[in-house]
């Protein structure tokens, strides 16, 4: 039984030091030169009234160049009639790792299609970690995050709550998921049917009563009856 002597693998880009680097002191001085050059440059900028740093004073100063997909403040999407699309299912509040979302559900007997709606929807921005899990969890695409940073009512940590009114101010002109503003508000009068009215109840799925367009297109049915292709 012979042992092969362990040889450290030599990489092609293994750093090697020349005699100049081995002298140590010149390289130290070079490093100090680099840092002091940066110091003098930034200090000169500060002295002449310019900004010598890459960071921003956050609440006083906001950057214009947030990424387009920056996870900034939360918004609640709206139905064409302006009511929140949220059905108060509490999924976002459940998935939230910081437990910052508080939803109080309420019952709206007039809206047959969406009888449950949030009476209160509040987010505590003092604890929010902006992870975006609430957006992922939402089954209704009701909560989203836009690039702008939240406009907090106060810098005090007990008053950094944002409520439903603020979250519903999002009113985009163009949206990939749904037309904003809606071209023809179709469900006015149909969707908001009273419980006791004798007319046809609003369908849960608005596509179900679309006319069939050709034989090859199947109307979407519920998942339990769908035949695997």
């Amino acid at each position: 039984m012979t042992h092969k002597r362990y040889r450290r693998k030599a990489y092609w880009n293994r750093p090697t030091m020349g005699w100049w680097e081995r002298l140590y002191l010149p390289e130290i001085l070079r490093g100090l030169g680099i840092t002091s050059r940066v110091f003098l440059r930034n200090m000169g900028k500060w002295m002449t009234g310019r900004k010598g740093a890459l960071t921003t004073y956050y609440p006083e100063e906001r950057r214009r160049d947030y990424a387009r997909h920056n996870r900034g403040k939360h918004v609640l999407t709206q139905r064409p009639d302006g009511s929140p699309q949220c059905i108060a299912c509490n999924m976002c509040a459940t998935v939230c790792p910081a437990k910052v979302i508080e939803i109080e559900a309420a019952f709206d007997p007039d809206d047959f299609a969406h009888p449950k709606y949030p009476a209160r929807f509040e987010i505590d921005y003092s604890r929010c970690v902006f992870c975006g899990l609430c957006v992922e969890a939402c089954p209704e695409d009701a909560i989203r995050m836009v690039a702008e940073v939240p406009n907090l009512p106060s810098g005090r940590r007990l008053q950094m709550w944002i409520g439903k009114e603020e979250l519903l101010t999002w009113n985009p002109q163009r949206d990939v998921a749904k037309p904003y503003p809606p071209k023809n508000p179709p469900l006015q009068g149909e969707g908001r049917v009273g419980m006791g009215s004798a007319s046809r109840p609003a369908l849960a799925h608005p596509a179900a009563d679309l006319p069939l367009e050709g034989a090859g297109v199947r109307p979407p049915t519920s998942a339990s009856t769908r035949v695997p292709q």
């Binding site: 940066v38 110091f39 200090m43 010598g52 740093a53």
Partner: peptide
């Protein structure tokens, strides 16, 4: 402060 200025911070 000097450390901050040296590393582009405030």
């Amino acid at each position: 402060k000097q450390g901050a200025v040296m590393s582009d911070r405030i």
